[in-house]
Design a protein around this nucleic acid. Structure first.
Lengths: 214, 214
DNA sequence: CCCGCTCTTGACAGGCTGCCAACAAGAGGC
DNA sequence: GCCTCTTGTTGGCAGCCTGTCAAGAGCGGG
């Protein structure tokens, strides 16, 4: 049983010539699999190439550097699908926040390994990693704001917009830490982390505590 | 001008024989200096040895592995002095939370470079780094609980104690993300981050919203 | 059927890490 | 004061990893 058979990525024949996009996708999938189990520093390019079923040099050909490959995989992993924020049920802000938190917890539970492999996020060490995480957070903040603060208009008051986005991004730090408490430490159950995140989200958003739709 | 002259660590004579504890301290100081400026992966053992004014192999002799040295430095850096939590002014919980946040912000502002350089730990989900951070958070959670929830008794209800500590540790995620918004992005000023952290801390603690001392 | 494009490979050079035996700087005994 | 013995310290060695590059091979076009 070779690794090519166990791996979900098909590698029917070595040296097989593929479309660049297809090959890129194969390598990225392999990288996502490995980085889901072990941290960046522990995964060598030889392993990445073996998992993808290609020669080691091909990684550099497509992604330049091992770090670039990691950053690309990380960016894909952190990107939140746009459809998630659309059509959240609930009338009051608390209800909508609850629905958003439920969606998030379901998603994270489905791919817990992948999510945790990224780490606590908002880390400090690597500037490039930080930048990728920040960009992903920026997009996620957009989703949250449009879903929960629809009356907010960035153009009308740019200063308030900056502060609001900052508060939402800071809230993501709470989300990540709470996820760790739930998935890794087990110090919170599903209901506990849900209550924590809903409470924090409602408390940290601006304006009246709870807005009712008339 | 040799590096030994520019470095703040004194290295009067190469091969100088020191007490093991003193040598350990010297190496640790050098590591803290370098890790304050650049991330873990970018600092080689050769640089660490040069900064400390010793041979490279001595690092392994004292700390085993480059990673072990890093973890030791990280543990020292994250340790919060015990005196910080004692004697917080204020009667209401909000007042005491504000005092705690003020202390934290002052401390972080004083050593912003160190705080941000190590930050939350390395990205990539390194288990050992995460463990060091978690241990430091555990201690910090003790300080916060004793300072802000003095009526809490861990022995009386162990389950409630686990949940309370989990909420406080999750709050630390909010603290770190908010610090980044303040120090790195500049999207929050001092008053903004203070308001955010006080609001979050009060909202996430259990029991009545605000406890008044009669 | 042959040619050319380019996807793919294997090998090479440089750097870094952990290990280890040899060296010598102090401390203690006489 | 000199010698010896402990042990802090050094420099080199082997192994692994990464980025680069020219050569080879698959596949479409003429």
């Amino acid at each position: 049983m070779t690794s090519a058979e166990t791996a979900s990525a098909p590698s029917p024949s070595p040296g097989r010539r593929l479309e660049p996009d297809a090959r890129r996708a194969e390598i990225l999938e392999a990288a996502l699999r490995l980085y889901a189990e072990r941290p960046y520093a522990d995964v060598s390019t030889s392993e990445l190439a073996r998992e993808a079923g290609v020669a080691r040099g091909l990684l550099n050909h497509y992604f330049g550097t091992k770090r670039d490959l990691y950053l690309t995989a990380l960016r894909i992993l952190l990107t939140i699908p746009e459809e998630a924020a659309a059509g959240l049920p609930g009338r009051t802000r608390t209800e909508r926040a609850g629905a958003a938190v439920d969606w998030f917890l379901d998603t994270v539970a489905a791919r817990a390994g992948l999510w945790l492999s990224v780490g606590v996020g908002g880390a400090g060490g690597d500037p490039e990693v930080d930048r990728v995480v920040e960009e992903a957070d920026e997009t996620a903040a957009d989703r949250v704001i449009t879903a929960l603060v629809p009356e907010h208009d960035p153009a009308s008051d740019p200063a308030a917009d900056v502060v609001l986005r900052a508060r939402v991004r800071a809230y993501f730090g709470l989300v990540r830490a709470a996820s760790r408490e739930w998935l890794v430490r087990g110090s919170l159950d599903h209901a506990g982390v849900r209550d924590l995140l809903v409470t924090g989200l409602v408390a940290l958003l601006p304006g009246p505590e709870i807005q009712e739709d008339p």
